[in-house]
């Protein structure tokens, strides 16, 4: 049973009462919410996600609750709660979906320490993963969404869940957040209607979400082998061009941007080094999304073996 198989009324009832339980990637979450605006958004964006009905260990017990007190009459707000605790300042009520996504990201980043959590987008083709690493504004999420629209499998637009034992990246195919101009750029790449409603005036500007493709969601138990690390940078006057990035730079960069590199200690160091050794690693300048996708497609059909490093035991 998928979330999309429920009627909106059924979904709303579950959210209000026992809470809706579903699986996304390796996680199971349970959400209680009394926010009417949230239900249709979840129904669409998480439509392909499997509902959990059997008793299970739940990774995140979440609540979305309207703000109380006098304030709600002129500026209604919504809170995000984990295990009954409010984690951060409330959002305006009509930003409930971005708040949900943001809150869940925070929960995963803080709790899933059994994974090495890199801050990259991940897409895959034929079981081989491409990690897109970039600071906010580099166009990492846009490029990720473009590749997904063009048929790559979405693993995540925010996290690489790297398993420290086998080095594989585990999927977490959730809605991919797009900001400002990126929304139209992605919309123009396809005739299908894959993008959800836009939320103007969030703290990151206007935000809309790309619905994860059904095939990506259904592959939630299939990890992928990291094969490429790409550090994209959108530059108005630079045609798509890949330049090899030195492995030591790549290691430091991935480590510095990771959510829990320091928490994982030596294990994190070796896991990133192994990942970098295994991957072909590039800087990637581009000024056009369609050409960028073509350049990365063509990279994915080549195979580059980087030279291995010398290593302590």
């Amino acid at each position: 049973m998928k979330i999309g198989d429920h009627s909106l009324e059924q979904l709303d009832g579950q959210l209000r009462e026992a809470g809706l339980c579903w699986r996304t990637g390796p996680f199971i979450l349970r959400l209680k919410a009394d926010i009417p605006q949230l239900t249709p958004w979840l129904h669409t964006m998480y439509g392909e996600h499997p509902v959990v009905t059997e008793p299970e260990i739940i990774d995140f017990h979440l609540q979305m609750r309207r703000g109380r007190g006098l304030r709600r009459w002129w500026r209604p707000q919504v809170h995000f709660l984990l295990d009954g605790n409010i984690l951060f300042a409330p959002f305006p009520l009509d930003h409930a979906p971005p708040l949900f996504e943001w809150g869940l990201n925070l929960c995963i980043a803080g709790r899933a320490n059994h994974f090495l959590l890199l801050h990259t987008a991940v897409v895959a083709k034929g079981g081989r993963a491409m990690l897109l690493s970039g600071v906010p504004g580099s166009g990492k999420s846009t490029l990720c969404a473009a590749l997904v629209v063009k048929g790559w499998r979405l693993l995540s637009d925010e996290f690489s869940l790297v398993h420290p034992d086998n080095g594989m990246v585990y999927p977490l195919a959730r809605p991919a957040a797009l900001k400002n101009q990126s929304i139209d750029l992605i919309r123009n790449l396809t005739t299908e209607n894959l993008i959800g409603p836009a939320f103007p005036n969030t703290r990151k500007g206007t935000v809309a979400h790309l619905k994860p493709p059904a095939a990506s969601v259904q592959a939630h138990e299939q990890p992928a082998q990291p094969a490429w690390v790409i550090c994209p940078q959108y530059r108005p006057d630079r045609p798509a061009h890949l330049t090899p990035l030195a492995p030591d730079h790549a290691l430091l960069r991935l480590g510095a941007n990771a959510f829990n590199y320091e928490t994982r200690g030596a294990s994190g160091f070796h896991a990133i080094a192994a990942l970098v050794n295994r991957c072909s690693v590039h800087h990637f300048f581009h000024d056009n999304l369609e050409e960028a996708v073509v350049a990365l497609e063509s990279l994915s059909t080549r195979d580059i073996q980087p030279s291995p490093s010398e290593t302590s035991s």
Partner: peptide
């Protein structure tokens, strides 16, 4: 095991 392992890491 995942939850406990994550807690052990911390």
């Amino acid at each position: 095991r995942d939850h406990l392992e994550g807690a052990r890491v911390v």
